[in-house]
Design a binder for these strands. Structure first.
Lengths: 167, 167
DNA sequence: AATATGTTTCATTATTTACTGAAAGTTCAA
DNA sequence: TTGAACTTTCAGTAAATAATGAAACATATT
């Protein structure tokens, strides 16, 4: 396989993979493109490479920056803005985990807590409902702690060593 | 808060939560409804409760069964089909993990392996590409192993005890 | 201060994804 | 073997989501 072909396939697959996880295709593709770009690139580069409009690039880049996955880079002597993505994959993963946790898991746990405040907690129906809600909350909290450990592992040298147990 | 109100909110939130993870809203809502239903229910019950069409219920129930999250139940003396969802949340989680792993992670790892078969592996550009692909593959494999451990924890009494470390 | 270069916004349009409902299919009972 | 009860399918439609492109905005250059 030619390198160019492989790169193209990587970008496409990453996009398809993203959509399955509720991430918009283009955003994932831009991220993929940046991951395999050896040096910072401009909006125009992305537009051309992925055949998409300027507005589309701009908005998705903005989102990617919001996710902490992409950064603006200033190239001296250049007027244009350049962009790069962190190539440290473990960092990328923890960053995504951190964001999704904040945006989704935490609010979900909060909501579940509210749902536990129902009247007539003694009623049979209510009890069963509370069991399910409580169980989900418990699982969510455990996931929360586990993810925190993973995030800290990225930030802390010692834990980082421990995590290497997972080969 | 009244029980009925809480149930309704649970169903809606579960649906919203699902969409963020690439799961269709209705499918998530049906699953939520089944989770908090104290006894098996019919297609008609679901249609009424969620105000959706018969076809919609039918197709999403079929998907849920495909995910191993819902089962058909035969009620003696009844012609209609009834449905239930497993209420063991840890089991639900591992089942979802198992399926997503099979449907998404495994194919992704396979693809990445293919992308490693490029010509001119010695070229500078190629080397950098291979590093990124290799790193993602490595991370994916670790996730794969970790998830296998979690799945086995559900199936194996001993590991199940160990996992309780996570309170 | 006029122009040139580059960025952002957002109303409109296109694409994708999900839903409906009626027709076809299935199963069972008489 | 007819038909009533129930389930499944899927073409057409609706709703949700994403992309375009041109205008507004911002900033540097002459």
């Amino acid at each position: 396989m030619k390198l160019e072909e492989a790169k193209q396939q990587f970008i496409n697959s990453w996009g398809a993979f993203g959509t399955q996880w509720g991430i918009n295709r283009t955003m994932a593709q831009i991220h993929a493109l940046l991951l395999i770009s050896t040096s910072p690139i401009t909006q125009d580069d992305i537009m051309e490479e992925l055949s998409i409009s300027r507005g589309n690039v701009n908005m998705n880049i903005r989102d990617l920056i919001g996710w902490g996955l992409v950064e603006r880079v200033i190239v001296s002597g250049e007027r244009k803005e350049y962009f790069t993505a962190d190539k440290n994959i473990w960092k990328v993963a923890t960053q995504i985990i951190k964001e999704r946790k904040k945006r989704e898991l935490d609010p979900m746990l909060k909501l579940l807590s509210q749902l536990e405040n129902i009247d007539d907690k003694k009623e049979k129906d209510a009890k069963e409902f509370l069991t399910v809600v409580g169980d989900i909350k418990k699982l969510g909290s455990h996931a929360d702690s586990l993810l925190d450990i993973m995030i800290k592992a990225e930030e802390n040298k010692f834990i980082s060593g421990v995590m290497k147990i997972f080969k």
